[in-house]
Simulated scan of single mutants.
Amino acid sequence: MTTRIQNERLRRPSGIRTLELGETTVTYIPDGAIQLTPRGWLPDTTDEVWDAHPEYLDGSGNLVGSIGGLLVRHEGRGLLIDAGFGPQTADAVPGNPYGAIRGGALLDNLSLSGWAPQDIEAVAFTHLHTDHIGWAYAAAAGSERPAFEGADYLVSEPEWAQRHLLEDVGTTGKMLAAMAPQVRTITDGQEIFPGVKARFIPGHTAGHVAYVVESGGQRLVAFGDALHSPIQIAHPEWSAVLDHDCAQSADFRRRLVAELQEPDTIGFGVHFADVVFGTVRRDDDDRPSWRPFDA
């Protein structure tokens, strides 16, 4: 991939992208996008950092964050990791660390991938922020019922037990009440689907989870909001402004970056613009960097 093409992909949200891992297929299902103000979202960065890395910023000077879910398919069964922002938009508000947010495309893109909501047996959440639970509580078009009403909602035990903490960042009691009848809590290390295990990585939220997919001698780590931008790969000390515990999240990022450099290990960053799948390798300066796939 040329530098020009890679830079273009850093400034746009992702389309549908698919990888084969042995007998398991993983597909990024887009729902929309969010703008992240660089200094607001990553407050430990400086103007000098972004002056040196304009390739990460779109025409409005913002980081581009994809929003969507990861479809995991195995022997005719389907698991969805995260459920996007849902059928809504939110305008930018001055002073917020994020700009405009738009969702609504996930069900259409799921259909384009050959799947319907009723084919999904479970939705596993990395955490319960609004850009990850949208289609879990919102009614599908022409219905009063949630799109995934037949699926179990898998949430880590500490995330669900401390869900009241999320109201300060927009996840309302009404949203959670709509999800509650389908929620099943999960434990650290639990296998939730063939070849898929939960790994608790608190920090961004109190019960944040990564999901590790293993098949065909390969391993994919869907790390949720442990990282929001590929630029953090070289700087795991940079926490997001909404991280519940910045020190804890930075500690997990350091471990994650080290793990992603191991052989046969792939990362999935749901907010990583149009470079959602990749590996981590050392660059010429011996710093770890994100190497996106062309998938």
Results as ranks from 00 to 15, higher is better:
L260Q: 07
R253C: 04
R255S: 09
H244L: 00
D286I: 07
A240T: 11
E259L: 10
S249W: 00
I231G: 00
D274L: 08
D285M: 04
G267Q: 07
A258T: 14
A258Y: 12
A250Q: 13
E262W: 06
G269Q: 04
T265F: 06
V280N: 10
Q232C: 02
P292T: 03
L256K: 08
A250M: 05
V280Q: 10
D251V: 02
I231D: 01
E259I: 00
S249L: 05
W290S: 02
A240S: 11
P263I: 03
D284Y: 13
P230S: 10
P236A: 05
W290M: 04
F252W: 15
V241T: 05
W290Y: 11
D284E: 15
V280I: 13
W238R: 01
R255F: 04
C246V: 07
D285G: 09
P230R: 12
S239G: 09
G278F: 11
V276D: 03
D243W: 03
W238V: 00
A234W: 08
G269P: 01
P263K: 04
G278P: 11
A240G: 08
R254D: 07
P288N: 01
F268V: 04
R255A: 09
H235V: 00
A273P: 05
D284T: 13
T265G: 03
S239Q: 01
D264S: 10
D283H: 09
A247I: 00
I231S: 05
A234K: 08
A234C: 07
D285A: 14
V270N: 13
D251N: 06
F277D: 08
R291E: 15
L242H: 07
R281D: 13
D283V: 12
I266V: 12
D274C: 08
H271W: 07
S239D: 09
S239P: 01
I266C: 06
V270E: 12
D285H: 12
P263N: 06
L260M: 09
